[in-house]
């Protein structure tokens, strides 16, 4: 896979860090590569540095040391600022606080307007973006009448209208109910599959992380482990030690497997788990 984002030994120190505690560094030596068109989930507990890292991908924060390249452009290079932000959009956690305009379609247009796109083209892009997140019917609505999941999809549409290559989502589902969470996750997986948009999903919901091509686990400002979901989630003890959850299916499978039963190395959802148990039981009763 072609390399799209490269993170080179990045450190980040908050300006207002507390001198009494020496936890001044939110990131201490992060290295990672994100491929073009990849769907990566970055997980970790609160304070692991995952949200700080998210804000580095489009130059909202700049590394205190180390460097980040987006499609070959250094995020610290002022001349590239708008090019980088055009390529990498960021969706934040609180859906209310990132919608600027009082009407859905005007909010979606906001980014394009800033980029100086001609009016006719903005119209097309906005309609298209709203269709992509399935919010076209709500284009004339006021955002405060929408549900959390709908607002978050409007925020995503606002990024899509700018035609980015990559969307970074910083805990986009943390404030949503299960239905809203499903809506948002469905939308981003679809954008990744159908349009090849690179997705970086920051989350602490493991059920969401299992959907990614690759999972990166962060802890104390560093990358703890990474790999395809089954590789990562098979390390149940490691994850638990670092205050992370595993899906109940994965945990049950792991517990039984460590008792010596012949089960797959890792299962990620209820269906696979039930199937594996079924095969185990059938196999043993023969």
């Amino acid at each position: 896979m072609e390399e799209f984002i490269k993170v080179n030994d990045v450190f980040y120190q908050y300006e207002s860090f507390d001198e009494e505690t020496d936890a001044g560094y939110a990131l201490c030596g992060v290295n990672m590569t994100i491929g073009r068109g990849e769907f990566v989930a970055i997980v970790g507990h609160n304070g692991s540095g995952k949200s700080t890292l998210a804000k580095h991908f489009n130059s909202i924060y700049l590394p205190s040391a180390g460097e980040i390249f987006v499609d070959g452009m250094d995020t610290a290079d002022d001349d590239c600022l708008f090019d980088i932000r055009k390529k990498v959009g960021l969706v934040l956690q609180n859906p209310d606080n990132q919608i600027v305009a009082g009407i859905v379609e005007e909010d979606v247009a906001f980014g394009c307007e800033n980029l100086g796109v001609p009016p006719k083209e903005i119209r097309q892009r906005v309609d298209e973006a709203l269709r992509a997140v399935d919010m076209y019917d709500y284009r004339r609505h006021s955002p405060d009448k929408l549900s959390g999941g709908q607002k978050q999809r409007v925020a995503i549409a606002g990024i899509i209208a700018m035609e980015p290559e990559c969307i970074v989502l910083d805990e986009p589902t943390a404030m949503l109910d299960p239905k809203g969470r499903d809506e948002v996750i469905d939308t981003i997986t679809r954008l990744n599959r159908e349009r090849g948009i690179t997705i970086i999903l920051i989350t602490h919901y493991m059920e969401e992380a299992v959907l990614a091509d690759r999972v990166i686990v962060m802890d104390s400002g560093k990358v703890l482990t990474e790999g395809m979901p089954p590789e990562v989630f098979s390390q149940v003890e490691l994850l638990k030690r670092h205050r992370l959850d595993v899906p109940q299916a994965t945990e049950l499978n792991h517990k039984l497997r460590s008792c010596g039963y012949e089960l797959p190395e890792c299962v990620l959802n209820a269906e696979d788990c039930a199937q594996a148990l079924y095969e185990l039981i059938k196999g043993m009763s023969l």
């Binding site: 489009n58 708008f82 055009k86 934040l92 609180n94 990132q98 600027v100 906001f110 980029l115 700018m162």
Partner: peptide
């Protein structure tokens, strides 16, 4: 938050 979101969208 809003300021950050606006910056992200090249305001």
């Amino acid at each position: 938050d809003l300021a950050m979101a606006m910056e992200c969208r090249c305001y």
